[in-house]
């Protein structure tokens, strides 16, 4: 494993700096109307009401960056928790079917059953993801723990395929809604506005705080179920609580920007390389890395076929897929 051993605080500061630079760059780069780097700063603390550029920064770009940060942190934290709970290095929202389940939930609500929309699309995503996750855990007999790695991933792949097929069926049935659902399935920050931000941030803060609270317990789960129990961990409550947190984190992220994959798989492993195996350290590192990665992909997504946009989810898949292959080759599962 590559080990870059900076002191923990140093790593945090560097990542925070990196995140600030990425966010700032994202605020002004690749815009049809020219925005200067200084415009981006002025819009934050001393806005000139006359300047269109600064209005774009404040009304469009800023919520987009903030939502990107939260989505990245959420998905990375969810990945860390899932890998900790299942003791499976491949566990992540996209591999274990939560993304596909949440997508199915969203698609069903926005096409077939709009009356459900009263409850909100977040709820639909959380319910869909939750059902898929429960099925995967049951099929993969994950509660027994131990050497069921292959089985859990197989169950995840099967459930994902099933959900994807159903989602397609739903789209075909309600064709007029298809375009919107498809954009959403690819995962894009294009439509991230202040309105989304307002409903997203409370859930995000609760989810991330919960993740930090569960971190020391995830350390003990690394020692195997028997040892964890022996050290006073109540396994059932940890697994239920952890699963709930995952659904909260993933559901809120997905309902805000769509099915962005690979962050949850990729980032925990990157964070481990940086900070080691102690969840109390690598979880916050993973959150910051995830935030950087999503903001960066969003920026790149505007650059690739400028002035049109590619979904950020597609960019992440482009980076994520080779890393996934690398992991599968490197690990003995």
């Amino acid at each position: 494993m590559i080990s870059i051993r900076l002191p923990f605080v140093g790593q945090c500061l560097i990542l925070l700096l990196l995140l600030l630079v990425c966010s700032w760059t994202s605020l002004f780069s690749w815009s049809v109307i020219t925005i200067t780097p200084m415009d981006a700063l002025h819009a934050l603390y001393n806005m000139d009401k006359e300047s269109i550029a600064q209005h774009i920064v404040h009304d469009l770009r800023l919520p987009r960056v903030l939502i990107g940060i939260m989505v990245g942190a959420n998905l990375a934290a969810a990945g860390v928790i899932m890998q900790g709970l299942t003791q499976n290095p491949l566990a992540s929202p996209s591999v274990l079917g939560i993304n596909a389940g949440a997508a199915l939930g969203m698609a069903t609500v926005s096409t077939i059953a709009p009356w459900f929309g009263l409850l909100g699309s977040s709820v639909a995503a959380i319910i869909g993801g939750g059902i898929a996750w429960a099925f995967v855990m049951l099929l993969g007999s994950a509660w027994r723990g131990g050497n069921e790695h292959g089985r859990l991933v197989l169950a995840g792949v099967a459930i994902s395929a099933l959900c994807a097929a159903l989602t397609k069926a739903v789209i075909i049935i309600a064709e007029d809604q298809a375009a919107g659902v498809l954009t959403w399935l690819a995962g894009s920050l294009t439509d991230a506005r202040w309105q989304t931000f307002d409903s997203f941030w409370p859930v995000c803060v609760i989810g991330l705080l919960g993740a930090m609270l569960i971190a020391p317990t995830l350390n003990l789960l690394q020692l195997g179920d028997d040892n964890a129990r022996n050290l006073g961990v109540s396994l059932m409550w940890v697994k239920l609580g952890g699963s709930f947190l995952v659904l909260l984190l993933v559901g809120s992220a997905i309902s805000s920007v769509g099915a962005i994959g690979f962050v949850g798989l990729l980032v925990p492993h990157m964070a481990r390389m940086l900070a080691g195996q102690d969840h109390r350290k690598f979880l916050p590192i993973a959150m910051m890395l995830g935030a950087c990665l999503v903001v960066l992909s969003d920026t790149v997504s505007r650059a690739i076929i400028y002035p049109a946009e590619t979904p950020a989810g597609a960019i992440l898949a482009l980076i994520g897929a080779p890393f996934f292959i690398y992991l599968v080759r490197k690990r003995t599962l």
Partner: peptide
């Protein structure tokens, strides 16, 4: 039978034995 935890140092593993006594942050 014991699992073989990856990337954990001996002193850290032994320290986990104290977790029933430490606060929740360990």
């Amino acid at each position: 039978t014991q699992p073989i935890p990856e990337g954990i140092k001996v002193k850290d593993l032994v320290a986990y034995g104290r977790s029933p006594y430490t606060g929740f942050w360990g």
